[in-house]
Computed example of a mutant assay.
Amino acid sequence: MSDLAVVLVDRLAGAFEQARDPERAVGAAAYMRDQFPFLGLTSAVRRARARVALAGLPPPAESELRDVALACWARDEREFQQFACDYLIRHIGVAGPAFLDTVGELITTKSWWDTVDPLATHVVADLVRRHPAQTARMDEWSGAADMWLVRTAILHQLHYREATDTGRLFGYCARQAGHRDFFVRKAIGWALRHYARTDPAAVRAFLTAHAGNLSPLSIREASKHL
């Protein structure tokens, strides 16, 4: 592990521990269906404590970015993974296309919406936008057995607006229209709802064409602002 990762995670541990809130931690864990232990930090407190830990440290190189992310993922408390998502979003510009392998590892480990969604809509989004050849990986992920990779493929263009590859957006949604998992069905509706801000007619046409295949949840979410 790089020196930067060792120093940063050690600082984070100390800064987070000072703000630990056991009562809030119980509620936070329950909200996440008791899948992860928490320190009980609100997002505002976590980010304030992170700024203390980051003070004076240089920006990471790509290898250091990976080390920090994996070191945070190795920690038990969920706030470390949430910090890692913020850190990746801030510094993803230093990463090349191969970094998508690391992000895939994070998406499929300790998976839940609070880490998968920022990784999908910001980190993966940036990597694919800067390295278009990686759209082939999105094609793979859109049919993966792991539902979180499917969700990521569907959501990675969430903020692309006019630059959205509609063939892939609609293709992924159609491919997984009958998926049984709530999080995939929700992702379909969310992605379509966002794109409807750019091209509502296209989304209406897609919903009409696939009304018999899409779940009521996906249709309801996609139609909210139409």
Rank of each mutant, 00 (worst) to 15 (best):
L119V: 11
L119M: 13
L119E: 10
A120D: 03
H122L: 13
H122N: 14
V124A: 03
A125H: 14
A125V: 06
D126C: 12
D126P: 12
L127H: 05
L127Y: 07
L127A: 01
V128I: 15
V128G: 11
V128K: 03
R129K: 08
R130D: 13
H131N: 15
P132H: 11
A133F: 10
A136N: 11
A136R: 14
R137C: 00
E140P: 11
E140F: 12
W141K: 03
W141Q: 04
S142V: 00
S142Y: 04
A144C: 10
M147D: 11
M147Q: 12
W148D: 03
L149H: 11
V150T: 10
R151P: 06
R151N: 00
T152M: 09
T152K: 05
T152G: 11
T152F: 11
I154Q: 00
L155P: 10
L155I: 05
Q157W: 00
Q157C: 01
Y160D: 13
R161S: 09
R161G: 08
R161A: 15
E162K: 14
E162G: 05
T164I: 03
D165G: 07
T166D: 01
G167F: 03
G167C: 01
R168Y: 06
L169T: 01
L169W: 00
F170T: 00
G171C: 03
Y172T: 00
C173K: 00
C173T: 03
A174L: 09
R175M: 05
R175T: 02
Q176N: 15
G178P: 09
G178C: 05
H179F: 06
R180V: 08
F182G: 06
F183E: 10
V184R: 10
A187M: 04
A187W: 08
I188R: 00
G189E: 02
